[in-house]
Simulated assay, not measured.
Amino acid sequence: MYVNRQDSASLSYIGFNLEKEPFDDVRVRQAVSMAIDKDQIIEGIYDGVGIPAIGPLAPNVFGYDENQSGLEYNLEEAQALLAEAGYEDGFSTTLWTNDNRERIDAATNVQEQLKHIGIDVDVQVLEWGAYLEQTANAEHDMFILGWSAVTGDADYGMYALFHSSQVGEPGNRSFIRNDELDELLDQGRRSTDETERLDFYRQAQELLVEEAPMLYIHHQQFLLGVRDEVKGLEQTPNQILLLQNVSLEQ
């Protein structure tokens, strides 16, 4: 028996509602992002299975920028940004999740970590239908969700999450509206030149580091137990089993 480990094209994230104070201030969003040690979540909740996310795209998605550093864990800088934004003593907020054990555990971990910079988080668990409806209506402060770039392309991994035409139910539940970002995503969608597209998505990822509409947690890895006599079994990054080359070795 061995374990087949497949990197996915998915993302788990905590989104901020840019239409609500204090998350309408980019410094607050950056501070929260820098105050979370993602390794704690991956090791403690996902048993070390997963890749820390620096942005919305997994490494195996076309358009991923390997030179992007993201917002790194730095409590001192997070506290300085909060003070600069006028929240030296922190603030109170809510973090929504649906009834999913791993997401609830991630939410409570974030709740504990944010205490270190004076942010008091009330974790609220919502029924799935109400969760989707209310986050689509911008009723939340922070929320946990996931997304998968099932096509393996940056357009699917970024357009719905960040384009202003997609706010609410289509996928942009952080309600980010940025003309420069819209133009980059539009150009990436229109262009047929791979080099051009890579540059558009590189610029878009750089802009998202600054705008920090969400805290990127991790890219999932799929684990599958396989008996030793099973040969040639593969999984795709969206968890589809490829069986055409499978054989049994007696």
Rank of each mutant, 00 (worst) to 15 (best):
residue 170 P to I: 00
residue 245 N to M: 08
residue 159 Y to E: 07
residue 200 F to L: 14
residue 119 I to N: 02
residue 180 E to S: 13
residue 31 A to W: 14
residue 132 L to N: 12
residue 64 Y to Q: 11
residue 173 R to D: 03
residue 66 E to P: 13
residue 16 F to S: 01
residue 45 I to Q: 05
residue 199 D to K: 15
residue 45 I to V: 09
residue 213 P to F: 09
residue 101 R to C: 04
residue 195 T to K: 10
residue 166 Q to Y: 13
residue 58 A to E: 06
residue 33 S to E: 08
residue 33 S to C: 07
residue 34 M to D: 05
residue 110 V to S: 08
residue 121 V to A: 09
residue 239 Q to P: 02
residue 23 F to V: 00
residue 160 A to W: 05
residue 80 A to E: 11
residue 227 R to G: 08
residue 220 Q to T: 13
residue 178 N to C: 06
residue 50 G to C: 01
residue 229 E to D: 14
residue 126 L to R: 04
residue 247 S to N: 15
residue 53 A to F: 10
residue 57 L to I: 05
residue 28 V to T: 07
residue 132 L to V: 03
residue 65 D to R: 02
residue 80 A to K: 13
residue 2 Y to R: 08
residue 120 D to E: 13
residue 222 F to G: 10
residue 30 Q to K: 14
residue 82 L to N: 10
residue 246 V to P: 12
residue 128 W to S: 15
residue 164 S to Q: 06
residue 128 W to Q: 12
residue 137 N to E: 13
residue 47 D to A: 10
residue 166 Q to M: 15
residue 46 Y to S: 01
residue 59 P to N: 00
residue 210 E to R: 15
residue 100 N to T: 15
residue 160 A to M: 12
residue 216 Y to A: 06
residue 39 D to A: 06
residue 150 V to G: 05
residue 70 G to A: 05
residue 55 G to A: 07
residue 244 Q to N: 12
residue 65 D to I: 03
residue 176 I to T: 03
residue 207 L to W: 11
residue 142 M to K: 02
residue 42 I to H: 05
residue 101 R to L: 12
residue 27 R to W: 00
residue 219 H to T: 04
residue 96 W to K: 02
residue 88 E to M: 09
residue 74 N to A: 03
residue 72 E to Q: 14
residue 1 M to G: 03
residue 174 S to T: 13
residue 228 D to M: 05
residue 70 G to L: 05
residue 26 V to I: 04
residue 198 L to A: 05
residue 62 F to P: 02
residue 90 G to T: 11
residue 190 R to T: 11
residue 146 G to C: 03
residue 216 Y to Q: 08
residue 153 D to Q: 14
residue 165 S to F: 08
residue 65 D to T: 12
residue 231 K to F: 01
residue 193 D to W: 10
residue 233 L to A: 06
residue 49 V to C: 02
residue 66 E to R: 13
residue 86 G to K: 06
